[in-house]
Design a protein around this nucleic acid. Structure first.
Length: 433
DNA sequence: TCTGGGGTCCTAGGACCC
DNA sequence: TCTGGGGTCCTAGGACCC
């Protein structure tokens, strides 16, 4: 916790629905619900007009329709949401270089890194007001709610207090006065299960939580959560605003309108999802070692199975093959409502080798030739590891840079290997899938 | 026909290594 | 032959967030 109210949390109001109302004037002033359109869909965002009817996020489409049948139900235009989000994030960065997006519609801004004369309450309040005006300007009328306080925790709590289109500043020193009367559920990380555990222990408010010893909370909730909650109950939170956070996993999943029973169909769907995961990984320069499938049975039981490779992949066919083999171990009689595939343990081989001990003093900048399409360039030095075939772009400083490419997914990724890496072998056609 | 999709973090047990 | 402890990696599941 800082001595100044220098962390700002911004939350765009009913974001997806607001973008729809901005782009389609006929929807303005009317209930708009994004999501909940499919047979098993849930509401992603409800406009404030729809919320009056009790429609809210995560509600099933069925229930939302029952409560507000005259609402416009939309499936969502994520390109538009992403584009609008970008404009907002840029407006935040214009205020301070230290911006941490939490999702398309939420971010922290570190005002201590902004160009402000000081961090007095009046100054940050004016900065927040100006930011809200600016967001409205760049988005073509979308409103945001802002909270400003001495920590991430308090800034986020504050931004919940005056929705929509509002702002709350918590003066330093008044944090606990604000928190103590509140329910424990205001604390991020306290969801239904934790709230119920606390309730059974007679703890309903932050003030009651504050009265519990740290040992007691750890006994009740485990080390990490117990310790974390003990601190938050005292408004102790020194987490910094972090601008760049690396992705840790990439996944695709889908819920089907009727339960799946045909294994061949499931394999086909997993294969398609795996290919999409591979495409997304390559687009972002990611590769990963652990492949996980997720299977939700008809009764909502959720299973996962994973397998870790010795070296990372971003190849859809490889991910698909492993995903299908993981599915083979599961009993799916009775039907499957959801299937998913993900890759975690993300690595960046190029980066690892560039910064490895051997390459420390070398500039290993490889100038890449035009990428090949489906065929190897004449005379290319073609190699492979267990994941697929590739050809050598360049080598030097004990590092071999290889472009991986399969016929169905050009252009392929580029990765670097140590020249003596046993994973690197002469090319033989990979086995038929 | 209650219960999305894309993520993050934590726990707990077993394997394995020193 | 009665007996370790710590650290790391992997797997499965669960809580939580937007």
């Amino acid at each position: 916790m800082r001595s100044t109210a220098s962390i700002l949390h911004l939350d765009l109001d009913a974001f997806f629905a607001a973008v729809e109302q901005r782009d389609k004037p006929s929807l303005r002033g009317k209930p708009v619900i994004v999501g909940g359109t499919g047979g098993r869909g849930v509401v992603s965002t409800a406009s404030y007009e729809a919320r009056k009817y009790g429609v809210g996020s995560a509600m099933s489409g069925r229930e939302a329709r029952a409560r507000c049948p005259h609402a416009a139900f939309l499936s969502g235009r994520f390109h538009a949401y992403r584009a609008t989000s970008k404009l907002v994030m840029q407006a935040l960065r214009d205020l301070s270089p230290l911006v941490e997006p939490l999702s398309l519609d939420e971010a922290f801004v570190d005002l201590a890194a902004a160009d402000l004369p000081d961090l007095e309450v009046d100054t940050v309040t004016a900065a927040g007001a100006e930011l809200r005006r600016r967001v409205q300007e760049v988005t073509g009328g979308l409103t945001a709610t802002v909270g400003i306080a001495s920590s991430k925790f308090l800034a986020k709590v504050a931004s919940e207090l005056d929705k929509p289109d509002g702002m709350t500043v918590v003066p330093p020193g008044t944090e606990l006065d604000l928190l103590r009367p509140m329910k424990v559920k205001v604390i991020p990380g306290v969801g239904p299960a934790t709230a119920e555990r606390l309730r059974r222990a007679g703890i309903h408010t932050v003030a009651e939580l504050e009265a519990v010893t740290e040992d007691e909370l750890v006994r009740l909730l485990g080390q990490a959560q117990g310790h974390g909650l003990w601190q938050l109950a005292r408004a102790q939170d020194s987490r910094p605003v972090v601008a760049e956070r690396e992705a840790k996993s990439i996944s695709v999943e889908g819920t089907y309108d009727s339960d799946l029973t045909d294994r061949r169909l499931m394999e086909g769907l997993l294969t398609r999802q795996a290919r999409e995961v591979g495409t997304r990984m390559r687009k972002n320069g990611h590769s990963g070692r652990t492949i996980t499938i997720k299977v939700r049975l008809h009764d909502f039981t959720t299973l996962s199975r994973s397998s870790t490779l010795t070296s990372p992949t971003d190849d859809g066919a490889t991910i698909a093959r492993i995903a299908r083999s993981l599915l083979a171990d599961l009993d799916t009689t009775g039907g499957v409502r959801l299937l998913g595939v993900g890759v975690s343990g993300l690595a960046d081989w190029v980066q690892e080798d560039l910064f490895g001990a051997d390459a420390e003093d070398e500039e290993v900048e490889v100038v890449l030739p035009e990428p090949p399409r489906r065929t190897w360039p004449p005379g290319a030095d073609v190699v492979h590891d267990e994941l697929g075939a590739g050809w050598v772009w360049g080598s030097g400083a004990g590092v071999v840079t290889v472009r991986f490419e399969t016929a169905d997914t050009p252009p392929g990724p580029v990765r670097s290997f140590r020249a003596d890496d046993p994973a690197l072998r002469r090319f033989e056609p990979p086995p038929e899938d």
